[in-house]
Amino acid sequence: MENLDPIFDRNVECPLCKTKFTSKKIRSKFIKVERYESDFCPIYKEGHVNGLLYNIYVCPDCGFSFSDDFSKYFPPGTKEEIINKVSSNWVPQNFGGHRTIEDAIKTYKLACYCAELKKEKHIVTAGLYLRIAWLYRLLENIEQEKRFMKIAIHHYYESYSTDDFRGTQVSEVRILYLLGELSRRIGEIDQAVKYFSMVIERQSRTVETKIVDMARERWYEIRDMQKQEDVINE
């Protein structure tokens, strides 16, 4: 029996210019996650393909870049904006083959730009920026990781403020937790405490008890760290 390749060609149609192309995807049975970090970054088992690398489709003809989370709807004027700012400057290139981490970062950055021009929901754009941060973490580029975490925080906050996450798989508790954890990771401790407290306050109104437990753990860690700092400074 022939061995099944973990990566296959998926047929895609560009929502903008209707060009048909192929893009690599990973068969779900081959995605093996060993654990998740405290901001939900997946750590894949050694020797297995990183599932983050192939989430973005890049049209080789017009440059429009998107994920499965993008809506099919283009608000009035956004198609023209994308054509003017992306397609008219696009140097034809193909991201449909095997990708390195650096390749994947380029595709996510293109998708972020297209998402902003298309006026995608903040919850979608936030997820793209967070994944760029995760990929920079793999490259051990702390400066760029934190830079993109800050942008993700902005979009998660806008999503929370405008309720645009409603109807998606992302809950209010998860957004608040991510706001807290990403704030903690970039050193904004007061903001982190505020958001973790908001998660804990909602413990009786959510079924996502694991996230509440994670927020409580982070909150205690911060409190213990601050106590130690107070002792040192006495």
Rank of each mutant, 00 (worst) to 15 (best):
V49I: 15
K194P: 00
D5R: 11
Q144V: 04
I142P: 00
E34S: 15
P76G: 06
S197P: 02
M225D: 13
L176Y: 00
R184V: 03
T100D: 10
N11T: 12
D103W: 01
R174D: 09
E172Y: 01
L138W: 05
D69M: 12
V173Q: 03
F95V: 05
I31P: 02
F66V: 05
R99I: 04
R35F: 14
F8P: 02
Y54S: 04
Y57C: 11
R10P: 00
S67E: 05
P42W: 05
R174F: 09
T125S: 08
S183Q: 04
K146M: 13
V124W: 05
L53S: 01
S67F: 06
I101E: 02
P15I: 07
K72A: 14
H48R: 13
I83V: 14
R223E: 14
I26G: 01
P92A: 11
L52Y: 05
V170K: 05
K72H: 10
T209D: 12
F74H: 02
I153S: 03
A152E: 02
D39H: 10
K227Y: 12
T206D: 05
N94D: 15
Q226P: 01
S197H: 09
V199R: 04
T78S: 11
P6E: 09
A133L: 07
H154K: 15
D224G: 11
G127P: 00
Y113V: 07
S204E: 14
K85A: 06
R185S: 12
T22C: 10
F70Q: 00
L135N: 03
L52P: 01
K210Q: 13
E158Q: 14
E102V: 10
T22S: 14
L138K: 10
L110H: 03
N84D: 14
N84H: 12
R223G: 07
K79V: 04
V12Q: 08
L139P: 01
G77R: 07
A111E: 05
